[in-house]
């Protein structure tokens, strides 16, 4: 029951690697942009799964 290879990880809707392609360039610190993107992406993930599991 190993996690599927290449599968999108739990907690993620759109992986950063995919989102990164949306920006022609990031002039400042990419880590900050990535951190905030991933945190809010996880909220969307939790919304979707909470609808399935809890409501």
């Amino acid at each position: 029951m190993a996690e599927q290879e290449g599968a999108i990880k739990p907690g993620v809707c759109i992986p950063w690697q995919e989102q990164r392609k949306e920006y022609p360039q990031i002039m400042g610190d990419e880590k900050i942009v990535r951190k905030v993107w991933e945190e809010v992406d996880t909220l969307a993930y939790l919304y979707i799964w909470a609808c399935l599991i809890q409501f």
């Binding site: 029951m1 599927q4 599968a7 990880k9 939790l46």
Partner: peptide
């Protein structure tokens, strides 16, 4: 069931 399992685990932990 195996594909859903890690998501159930993540949701439980979160």
């Amino acid at each position: 069931t195996e594909a859903l399992m890690p998501h159930m685990l993540f949701h439980a932990m979160a």
